[in-house]
Computed example of a mutant assay.
Amino acid sequence: MAVSVSVVLLLLLLAAMLMRNRALKPSHAVVCVLLGFCLASTSLAPTIQSTLTSTANLVGTMHP
Score class of each variant (00 low, 15 high):
24 L>D: 02
23 A>E: 05
39 L>G: 02
16 A>G: 01
21 N>V: 11
57 N>D: 15
52 L>V: 12
2 A>H: 10
25 K>A: 07
7 V>Q: 05
28 H>G: 08
59 V>W: 10
22 R>E: 00
53 T>V: 14
26 P>T: 00
5 V>K: 07
27 S>D: 07
10 L>F: 04
30 V>C: 01
43 S>W: 09
13 L>P: 00
20 R>D: 06
32 C>N: 02
37 F>S: 06
2 A>D: 09
37 F>W: 14
1 M>F: 12
17 M>T: 05
28 H>Q: 10
8 V>L: 07
54 S>N: 15
38 C>I: 14
22 R>Y: 00
23 A>F: 12
55 T>V: 14
40 A>D: 03
52 L>T: 07
14 L>S: 05
13 L>F: 12
24 L>Q: 00
9 L>D: 07
39 L>V: 07
5 V>Q: 06
22 R>K: 09
1 M>E: 09
17 M>R: 05
12 L>P: 00
45 A>F: 14
61 T>E: 14
45 A>H: 11
38 C>L: 15
8 V>W: 02
25 K>C: 08
32 C>F: 01
1 M>P: 06
50 S>N: 13
33 V>T: 00
16 A>T: 09
12 L>K: 04
22 R>A: 03
46 P>T: 06
35 L>V: 07
19 M>C: 01
49 Q>N: 10
43 S>Q: 12
48 I>L: 15
48 I>K: 02
39 L>E: 12
54 S>C: 09
45 A>W: 12
3 V>E: 03
5 V>T: 08
